[in-house]
Design a protein around this nucleic acid. Structure first.
Lengths: 193, 193
DNA sequence: GACAAGAACGAACGATCGTACTATTTTATT
DNA sequence: AATAAAATAGTACGATCGTTCGTTCTTGTC
């Protein structure tokens, strides 16, 4: 009971690492078994297919993401402070994983690959964007944003900024990227005040 | 002489399609041979390794990108019209390829995978960002942007916007995405005037 | 300590991967 | 038409892919 769950978590942790670095499609059962010192078949038994493994990696990542990025942000004061906390948390999240945010790379990989994995990913991304929208609305309520903003537009603007950071940080490793992110964020926030 | 080059182009065209849809790492010599009605070995002879094939696909894509996005933009009037042309061309480019822009997905996939492919991709992305910076400078010269702008920041801002469009368009297929892009672009351009 | 359930293993499967070699066909040049 | 060169095909290789199956080891319960 407890044993199985424990090793499964170990596998998912290694799988998330591997997926962040190489992409979700390149997570191989053989490689994953090697890095976790398990047999292929022993590992495979925990999932019933590679597709399930991919889905479970995504769900595991979503759980970590929620705990590490979203929930702590929701605990800070509504409005701009909350938005800043979210951005900080997201930046830390994507910096800690080697290879960047799994959702970003998976979104690029699975946008045209129908199946369970794509469906899960799509729902996760929709939920994330919903989260951004709700946070914008709470900023309106808090008086930090003006009344007539388009929260869908805000979510797009902010997510775009994060995606830009992601590429600059992971591929180009631009030394000025943190200032760039800050500059863009200030301008973005100002335009919604 | 001419024959070989012709079939090579056919292969690269199919390879670009496949890479856009499935990711550069999932372009398989076997699959590519199947879709082009060639033998694996006959196809393989044109490239000398899979790595070279990936590099040549990237270079082929860069050529198309230059011809279809950059060059026509440079032919239009410097300043905001040129920037708008670039954005329009980029949007068309990324919409025409099934699965989105190969450079975006490859950037996510190869950011942590050292080798020839990553090096080529990195240089291409640097060149693209350089291009954005030069276009910003020409907008300064043309009087559309104020004198003291940070063109590196502008490149980051604009590329972020395009990346946001890319994700919304390909994964989420948001119906409002074109308006969102336009809204964000107007605000971006205004902030540099 | 017996026993059932759960967890992990070993071996093997057909398929496909990238790559190497050798033949055969097609093309261009004389 | 002959011939050299280029282009393509055929076959085979070791490795690895995802998956199945039967066996062994480990665990908790009575």
């Amino acid at each position: 009971m407890a044993k199985g769950e424990h090793t499964k978590l170990t596998v998912l942790e290694a799988g998330l690492d591997m997926a962040s670095q190489l992409g979700l499609e390149c997570v191989t059962i053989g490689n994953l078994a090697k890095t976790t010192n398990m047999s292929k078949s022993g590992l495979f038994a925990h999932f019933q297919s590679k597709e399930n493994l991919q889905v479970e990696i995504l769900n595991y990542a979503a759980q970590l993401f929620s705990e590490g990025v979203v929930v702590p942000a929701l605990k800070t004061q509504a409005g701009i402070p909350r938005i800043r906390a979210l951005v900080d948390n997201w930046t830390r999240w994507t910096s800690e994983l080697k290879g960047g945010c799994i959702f970003v790379s998976a979104s690029a990989d699975f946008s045209d690959r129908p199946g369970k994995v794509r469906n899960v990913l799509l729902n996760q991304q929709k939920e994330w964007i919903d989260c951004l929208q709700r946070i914008a609305q709470s900023a309106v309520k808090a008086g930090d944003f003006r009344q007539d903003i388009d929260e869908g537009q805000f979510a797009f603007d902010l997510y775009s900024l994060l995606l830009g950071f992601h590429l600059y940080y992971n591929l180009l490793d631009d030394s000025k990227i943190r200032e760039r992110e800050e500059t863009a964020l200030v301008r973005l926030l100002d335009s919604y005040k």
